[in-house]
């Protein structure tokens, strides 16, 4: 997968641009959407607590893979949503899910040697969507492009805010 910083920058760019047209979408809501982009990265819990360890405690096979799928994003978006006040739930759930989806899509276009991405639509389907294989996860170009785009959007955003 792309690094977490890139994952966070993509919804920042998209939501900030959207905020120029959508009144309620201010900086604090953009940040909530960015949070969703971190969900698929939680698969790296493996570094802290290995699947093998959990398996031996549970006595069942265990895999963190669902965290980087649509199912994992929807469920954790629900958990995050409940942390907010009831009147914000619809908005939070939408934004967090959106952020998670941008990460899944970004990871879905990275390189797979057989031309098919991971099963990121799990558990809804076991189908592996085709990938255009645009980048590998350690390619700094992806982060550089994301940083440049985010920087540009931030500057434009500041000007728009100032003119209002």
């Amino acid at each position: 997968m792309a690094d977490l910083l890139t994952h966070l920058l993509v919804p920042y760019i998209l939501l900030t641009v959207a905020s120029w047209r959508v009144d309620w979408l201010d900086q604090r809501w953009v940040i909530v959407g960015m949070g969703g982009a971190a969900i698929p990265d939680l698969i790296k819990l493996e570094i802290v607590l290995e699947e093998k360890t959990v398996e031996s405690i549970l006595g069942h096979p265990f895999s963190y893979d669902p965290l980087s799928t649509l199912g994992g994003v929807l469920l954790l978006a629900g958990v995050i949503t409940v942390a907010f006040e009831r009147r914000h739930w619809r908005r939070v759930f939408g934004l967090v899910t959106f952020g998670g989806l941008t990460s899944l899509l970004l990871d879905g276009i990275r390189v797979y040697a057989d031309g098919r991405a991971s099963v990121w639509l799990y558990p809804f389907t076991n189908w592996r969507p085709p990938t255009p294989s645009l980048y590998v996860s350690s390619d700094p170009t992806v982060l550089v492009v994301a940083l440049l785009a985010a920087g540009t959007v931030a500057v434009v955003d500041r000007r728009i805010q100032a003119s209002n």
């Binding site: 699947e51 069942h60 265990f62 994992g72 954790l76």
Partner: peptide
């Protein structure tokens, strides 16, 4: 609500492995 969602997610963790 959080507990239910986490239980479903836990179920997926096992289901995905199986």
């Amino acid at each position: 609500i959080v507990l239910v969602l986490c239980l479903i997610l836990g179920g997926l963790f096992v289901h995905a492995a199986v």
